[in-house]
Design a protein around this nucleic acid. Structure first.
Lengths: 136, 136
DNA sequence: TTGTATATTGCAACGATGTTGCAAAAACAA
DNA sequence: TTGTTTTTGCAACATCGTTGCAATATACAA
């Protein structure tokens, strides 16, 4: 079990109060979190500091963006293999249309795709929506 | 060939100047367009009216959202089968990481996916990024 | 432990954007 | 053409992304 402090150090991020708190939120929730979600969990935090915290985490390969059709930006923890110079988040995201909870699905491989020759494929972003276990 | 005026009527949208202009933009470009893109093509248009135009088009099944990881909301023309009560935009989106142009790929079927039983899949959103013909 | 170099925070400030209300103008149907 | 309904353009407000800057906190070497 790696502590949030150790995880920050491993990504060369200075440990500060808010960074530990935000990282712990991600570790505890295992869900993609929007800025609003985080603000609810951590009231009285400066919104600009939170903005910069998430930006730092993203730059350093600690979290990645999760996009959805409602255009609310969420973030989720990266796999351990991500770093500041390489993101490696090849997995499906699932968003429940009812409760809006969004999770990373790690154990289903991304499908192989063959596009017409004129396209050079570099990355796939696959978001599946539907009902989660609790809402079905 | 269906005119933009006819297309608006078919979706029960009143034909006004800005609506015809915006719809023509989509018909001519065959690209997904952001609000900023449209404002460049149509300067001196009231931004609120444009906002409501896009909202109306989306509600009535004329355009659909195209999401990408940079979190810039774009819209693209729907297939003819979309209407105000049913969107049917099952296709891949391709975004060029260089020129940022985003297109709908109509002739490649969406892959079949099998998720763990606890998920009820309703919709797939697949965005492929890479290099387009011109940027390769 | 203490001092210092470096990074982070919190605040002000600004622009961009989403959204609603409302009166004037435009589109539609008879 | 006339009356009804919708749309537009503007004001207004909230929210959010972003940057600069001074005060504060962290990391590390001595």
């Amino acid at each position: 079990m790696v502590s949030s402090t150790q995880q920050l150090s491993a990504h060369k991020i200075r440990t500060t109060e808010i960074r530990i708190a935000v990282l712990n939120l991600f570790l505890e929730n295992k869900q993609a979190l929007s800025k609003q979600d985080i603000e609810q969990f951590l009231p009285n935090q400066d919104r600009i500091t939170l903005y910069r915290t998430l930006k730092t985490f993203e730059d350093k390969g600690l979290i990645h963006r999760v996009i959805n059709s409602s255009n609310i930006l969420k973030y989720a923890l990266c796999s351990d293999s991500c770093s500041h110079d390489y993101h490696n988040d090849q997995h499906i995201h699932f968003e429940c249309t009812n409760c809006r909870q969004t999770t990373c699905i790690e154990n289903v491989p991304l499908p192989k795709l063959t596009l017409p020759k004129e396209y050079l494929v570099q990355n796939l972003e696959l978001t599946v929506s539907g009902l989660c276990k609790d809402c079905k």
